[in-house]
């Protein structure tokens, strides 16, 4: 691969590279892979797997958006936020509440849920701007804990009236409505895959534009970014807004996939830490890492639990490996952040 590094720039890859390198450095390589993955997600998976695995792949598709949003903040801007699960929960709650209260089309609900999460995401980002690395992780962990407490008090809407929209008699509990064109589990799974695709494209588009370049600059050195004229505060908030929007939309997509009565378990502190752990395992720089992290967190873990480990101990062992990776990464990241301070 060193040959790739030392060759001069040109549009077509040079002929002396190995075949595999020639393929992967081709400009069309990534779009083709994206289309293949999308087609596999939309058609191959529903025809090869039963309803149990469709439910797992549904979670994978939803979680991949959340992972990509956390990876975007960490990998592209250098912000370790444990608040993405809170944004995920906010988007879920808002979408559910509006789904019961209004007749708006589901995609509109998703956008509203995402926007509310984005506004709150920016408000979270404001006080968090002064800290970085491990310290930002701690501040946002408090937020995740706060969100857990709020959700314990309010619960998720399940067809009731009033602000909370909660009914207490079990027989009155309703499932969140789905879009008319995606009523069945498989159709709704496909709807989520399309939603995830749109979110990944959005992230990819923004990353390739002015904000993406500003974030790369901030991640490298805030001092150099300021010297280049980048309004670091504004672009960090923009990153928080985009990431929270993505997680909020993911929450909205998740809302329709749950049969009856949403549990708050997916939105607690453990989930917040677990999210960062799998994101780091999946890889934080590339958006593909979001997909891989979500795969670890959902399908792979399920598969290992059932077929390989077959014992609680080994599942916990796998989880503690995620935790170890997280700690090692945060400690290293904090050291880098300290080294990067303005040279006096």
């Amino acid at each position: 691969m060193t040959a790739v590094v030392s060759t001069p720039a040109s549009s077509a890859p040079p002929a002396h590279l190995p075949l595999l390198a020639r393929i992967t450095t081709n400009r069309l390589f990534e779009p083709v892979v994206v289309v293949v993955v999308l087609l596999v997600g939309l058609f191959a998976i529903p025809s090869f797997f039963d309803s149990y695995w469709i439910a797992n792949f549904t979670q994978l598709a939803v979680f991949s958006i959340v992972c990509a949003s956390a990876g975007l903040l960490y990998g592209r801007v250098g912000l370790v936020s444990l608040g993405q699960v809170a944004s995920y929960g906010i988007g879920c709650w808002v979408t559910m509440r509006l789904a019961f209260a209004t007749t708006l089309p589901y995609p509109v609900l998703l956008v509203i849920g995402g926007l509310v999460a984005a506004v709150i995401g920016v408000m979270i980002g404001l006080p968090a701007l002064r800290v970085s690395g491990l310290y930002l992780a701690l501040v946002t962990l408090m937020l995740a804990a706060g969100m857990e407490i709020v959700l314990e008090r309010t619960g998720f809407p399940n067809g009731g009236t009033g602000f909370k929209g909660v009914v207490t008699t079990i027989s009155d509990i309703k499932a969140t409505r789905r879009p008319s064109f995606a009523g069945t589990d498989v159709a709704y799974y496909r709807f989520i895959v399309v939603g995830a695709f749109v979110m990944f494209m959005l992230a990819s588009y923004v990353l390739s534009r002015k904000p993406g370049r500003a974030w790369a600059s901030i991640r490298q050195s805030e001092a150099a970014a300021l010297a280049a004229g980048i309004d670091v505060t504004r672009y960090k908030l923009w990153a928080f807004a985009l990431a929270a929007f993505m997680a909020g939309v993911a929450g909205g997509l998740y809302a329709g996939s749950v049969p009856k009565g949403m549990s708050i378990d997916a939105f607690n502190r453990q989930s917040a830490i677990f999210l960062i752990a799998v994101v780091i395992m999946g890889g934080i720089y590339s958006l593909w890492g979001g997909l891989l992290g979500a795969f670890f967190a959902t399908c792979l873990l399920k598969y290992l639990t059932q077929n390989v480990f077959g014992h609680q101990f080994w599942t916990r062992f796998a989880l503690s490996l995620f935790g170890f990776g997280l700690l090692a990464n945060l400690i290293q990241n904090t050291r880098i952040a300290e080294r990067k301070g303005v040279e006096a």
Partner: peptide, 9 residues
């Protein structure tokens, strides 16, 4: 800057 700050990525 003394340590060069070209953006790696």
């Amino acid at each position: 800057f003394q340590t060069e700050q070209a953006i790696e990525k």
